[in-house]
């Protein structure tokens, strides 16, 4: 029982945080609880041994999504829209329905867990074919080799999401920071952005034999890009090249066609070079994911290069 004390605590924390997130009065409180909830869920993934998912949950679920929510909240508040952000009421019917659904889910899950044998056949299959897959990390093997179609579709879905955001045409962050506010962000970016570029590359590389991979690397790079854009509005002002945005999808589809030509089967990598094919696809995918996540925040607009708001100065008035 003591051994599971930690697990019980974080399970309780998850439920409490979720309730707080749903039922708090102010939107900003909900957002904060949501970010905390993401981190606790990442802890749960770690406890379950799913380290890749834990990294992705912390980076994308808490980091990128949290930033997205905060930007949206500020933009809505600034626009003084009709949506009342200070009140967060849910009708009684919704609460009752949600409670009912949760009870059903918990009941069915627990009966499945209690009364059926765990199916270890899948894990055995993966482990026995691992040496043929070209990588040592079973998660990457499944994602990029055994079930590569699913990953191809996932990247397609991400691309569609970015298309949707672009077509609305409203950027979440469309005013320039006051010149003096840029100074500290500028200094922060000098430290963080190169480190994130390097570390994202490492995460991409290490996905072959350790927790990591394309999605995690893409999330790290997206964070670096967003910070760079906040600190240096001039630098990334031009439109994102559509080639870069879609390169993940293009490379993946090209790989599929190429493998069809070579092996008469889509995405059946040549046996000796499977690892290299996977690395190539992962790199393209990571670049795409980073740019797609970044594009959720910023719709590029032409910035007048001569305006005074674009010169970054620090508090003393010196220009950087």
């Amino acid at each position: 029982m003591m051994f599971y004390l930690f697990d019980i605590i974080i399970a309780l924390m998850t439920i409490i945080l979720a309730c707080l997130c749903l039922f708090s009065r102010q939107a900003i409180n909900s957002i904060t609880y949501f970010i905390a909830l993401g981190l606790i869920v990442a802890l749960i993934w770690t406890r379950l041994g799913a380290y890749d998912v834990a990294i992705a949950e912390a980076a994308i679920g808490s980091g990128v999504t949290g930033a997205l929510l905060l930007f949206s909240w500020r933009k809505l508040r600034a626009a003084k829209s009709n949506i009342t952000l200070t009140e967060n009421t849910i009708s009684k019917k919704v609460i009752a329905t949600a409670f009912f659904i949760v009870v059903i889910i918990v009941f069915s899950l627990s009966s499945i867990l209690l009364f059926s044998k765990p199916n270890s056949a899948l894990a055995y299959l993966v482990d026995s074919s691992l040496s043929d897959s070209g990588v040592l990390n079973p998660v990457t093997a499944v994602l990029l080799n055994f079930r590569s179609f699913d990953t191809l579709l996932e990247i397609g879905v991400l691309f569609l999401a970015a298309l949707g955001v672009y077509s609305i045409g409203i950027s979440l962050f469309d005013y320039e920071l006051k010149p003096s506010s840029n100074f500290l962000l500028h200094s922060l970016s000098k430290l963080v952005v190169p480190a994130c570029v390097l570390f994202g590359g490492y995460t991409l590389w290490v996905g072959s034999y350790s927790p990591g991979g394309a999605f995690q690397a893409g999330a790290v790079w997206a964070g670096a890009l967003i910070l760079l854009r906040l600190a240096h509005p001039r630098l990334l002002a031009r439109k994102l090249s559509p080639w870069l945005l879609t390169i993940g999808l293009i490379v993946f589809i090209a790989a599929a066609i190429a493998t069809f030509v070579i092996n008469k089967n889509f995405l059946l990598y040549p046996a000796l070079y499977a690892g290299k094919w996977i690395l190539l696809i992962e790199t393209a995918a990571a670049i795409s994911i980073a740019l797609l996540l970044y594009s959720l925040f910023f719709i590029p607009k032409k910035i007048n290069s001569k305006s005074a708001a674009n010169t970054i100065t620090d508090d003393a008035g010196e220009s950087i």
Partner: peptide, 16 residues
């Protein structure tokens, strides 16, 4: 070291 640097910078940003 990285977290040290970023967190002290962040505390400065927040304090400011």
């Amino acid at each position: 070291l990285f977290i040290l640097a970023t967190s002290s910078l962040m505390s400065f940003i927040i304090a400011r």
